[in-house]
Design a protein around this nucleic acid. Structure first.
Lengths: 175, 175
DNA sequence: AGGGTCATGTAACGCGTTACATGATTAC
DNA sequence: GTAATCATGTAACGCGTTACATGACCCT
């Protein structure tokens, strides 16, 4: 992909799992190229405009595989919403209920989107999955699609659990 | 609290919701004091050693209450573990299962800790809750304790859901 | 001619992490 | 006396966010 492709990529469905602003992409691509993890290939797009398409090198692939294969420490938690919820007793109940309303809407939306994406993956109907499958034995295709779909199933399940938790919280606030 | 108190505070049970390294505490305290949100009070602790105990000013309290009362946009997601899970098809299944084993242990531990903390809150048995309740009408005590306990109930429920999701993932990997 | 998309950058500023650094006081 | 705890800082470096900035190409 080119830097521009990545900018759009992180604004799209991948944005639910990992976000990156445009200003980080280009410097990071150069740093990764210097580290030998990716290699850039300049393409002409008209007489003056060029775009640089990067691909993962063997070294980059090896580093990725070794990172994928071992468990990493969880990042320190930093959850502003939980700080809010822990202090709902400091504000009027009606305000807390409204904050939870917004939270519930957000979680329900996230769950629906994750479920929709899960279904697209099971239908093998996303560009990235097709690209991935094209390099794999057809016998593995179903298993790979189910594995990836399962990730979005988990995201949806967590969002549903959070929404349900928030609804219980509203009941507590109103009692 | 003093800076030192806060360092220990963020290493303790609050560390599940918000973490902050020692190096951030002191600069941030000074910035918040400059902003008028907190006020420091120097105490002598021996002939030479002093500690500065900060308390929240009226302005700081007002800012907190107004922040607590409105919904905020969720932070952009950035979940390295999900990136790992999404690419389990790139590594041997046995490695992926081992990564999930570590994840399950982590989530189970987090859930157990959250449940234990929930129970302490219901028993009104934490220093912070006692401090909070001492400034409130005794009639409200049960409601406040239940509200705070509910937050940790939610943390536990999410951790349990994630662990269950990971176990399903292991079944998928082994099939 | 104009707007939309393609394509790539820079600058400022604060947050977060790891590591280094120092000295006082208390308890045994 | 000496080890643990109390107490407070600094430095280096990269990540993340918002905002600013520029120009080429394509379609109507």
């Amino acid at each position: 992909m080119s830097g521009y492709d990545l900018v759009r990529f992180f604004d799209g469905s991948t944005g639910w799992i990992w976000a990156a602003p445009q200003s980080q992409i280009y410097p990071m691509l150069r740093r990764m190229e210097q580290a030998g993890l990716i290699a850039g290939d300049e393409e002409a797009r008209g007489p003056r405009l060029t775009r640089t398409v990067y691909s993962v090198t063997e070294k980059g692939h090896a580093e990725l595989a070794s990172w994928l294969g071992v468990a990493h420490d969880a990042a320190p938690p930093r959850d502003p919403f939980m700080v809010q919820a822990l202090n709902f007793d400091m504000i009027p109940a009606a305000e807390a209920v409204a904050v939870l309303d917004a939270f519930i809407a957000e979680q329900d939306k996230a769950a629906a989107e994750a479920e929709a994406h899960r279904d697209r993956l099971l239908r093998k109907d996303t560009a990235l999955l097709k690209e991935r499958l094209s390099r794999r034995d057809p016998e593995e295709h179903d298993r790979i699609a189910r594995l990836k779909a399962h990730v979005f199933d988990g995201i949806a399940a967590v969002a549903r659990a959070k929404a349900e938790w928030a609804r219980e919280g509203q009941r507590l606030l109103e009692s």
